[in-house]
Amino acid sequence: MTARLIIGALFMVGLWALVAKRNLVKKVFGLTILNSAAVLLFIVEAGGSGDGAPIMGGGQRIVDPIPQALMLTAIVIGVCVTALALGMAYRLYKATGSMDIEEIRKRLGNG
């Protein structure tokens, strides 16, 4: 329960950055924090199902390896999303000369 609440708080921090911050780079940070919160939630939840890492031969009851395999995918996709988002932010900066989302909207002429 405590772990879930802390992860929830982390998720909210990411959401806050995504919604309230006007700087595009900080928005991308928020996206990354959201992704990390989701990854942590899966790992922590599955961690309750055993004692040892999911590697055979340790003699312990292993945790469920499926969430770990899924999160491996999620981390890679998260890196891809971050790289693309930063690329887009850079492109917007080059086009408008600003990282501020309101300023960009104004300068692109539909503000």
Partner: peptide, 19 residues
């Protein structure tokens, strides 16, 4: 997953280069 990574890398390089 590897295809997604390939596309993301090419996309990011393309976007940064084209700017």
């Amino acid at each position: 997953e590897t295809i997604v990574l390939l596309v993301a890398v090419s996309g990011a390089i393309g976007m940064i280069g084209a700017a």
